[in-house]
Simulated assay, not measured.
Amino acid sequence: MLKGLGQLGDMAKMMKAAQEMQGKMAKLQEELAEMTVEGESGAGLVKARCTAKGVLNGLDIDPSIFNPDEKEVVEDLILAAIKDAQAKAQVRARQEMEKITREMGLPEGMDLPL
């Protein structure tokens, strides 16, 4: 189609690749919002669930930890579980992004915004 136009043909290829990447990024954003990861603390006594985008959407707390004298311990366990889930969400999002960059033939380690 653009044969013989030299650099204009290359530019058209780059624009097409950019549009393709934009579409894949939009799809990835939707998928990350639906993926669920789970973090835990206290050997599973507190579990937190969040999307791969880091949005907290659930907690599961074992009733055995509800001792009024250990309120601070419970609070620490809850925070630890949430932080664990959010850290796993970041890892999962990064892994999904790496899949896309590999498919697009982009250099490994290229850090694209999520």
Rank of each mutant, 00 (worst) to 15 (best):
R49Y: 14
G42E: 01
Q95V: 04
A26S: 10
D10L: 08
P68T: 02
A43L: 12
Q95A: 14
E70I: 01
E98T: 10
Q29M: 00
M25S: 07
R92T: 09
E96A: 12
M11Q: 08
G54V: 13
G42I: 02
K71L: 11
S41F: 12
A12R: 04
L8W: 02
K24W: 00
D84H: 12
S64I: 10
E72A: 10
D111Q: 15
G109E: 12
E96D: 01
E96R: 09
M25L: 07
M35Y: 11
E108R: 15
A89G: 03
M104L: 12
G9L: 02
I78H: 00
Q22G: 02
G39A: 03
T51V: 11
G58M: 04
D69P: 04
A33C: 07
F66M: 09
D84P: 09
I78M: 03
S41H: 14
E108H: 08
T101F: 06
D111I: 13
R102E: 15
K83L: 15
E20L: 01
N57R: 14
K53F: 03
F66T: 03
L8N: 07
K99G: 00
D76M: 12
E38Q: 11
V91I: 10
E108F: 05
A33V: 07
E75M: 05
D76K: 10
I78C: 03
E75A: 14
G109R: 10
G54R: 12
A87Q: 14
L77W: 00
L59F: 02
E103Y: 01
S41C: 14
F66L: 11
G105K: 05
E98M: 12
M15W: 12
D10Y: 07
L28C: 04
K83T: 13
M104T: 07
K99C: 00
G9S: 06
T51S: 15
R102Y: 13
N67I: 15
V73C: 05
E98A: 15
R92E: 14
K83Q: 15
L77I: 03
E98S: 13
M104A: 13
A48L: 00
E40C: 06
V46F: 12
A52T: 03
M21Q: 04
E72N: 06
K27N: 09
M21S: 06
K24H: 02
K47V: 04
T101R: 06
I82C: 13
S64N: 10
G23R: 09
I82P: 07
D62T: 10
N67Q: 14
A17Y: 08
G6C: 02
Q19T: 07
D84Y: 09
G44W: 07
I61H: 04
K27C: 03
V73K: 11
G4T: 01
A12G: 03
V46D: 09
A52P: 08
A26Y: 00
A81Q: 09
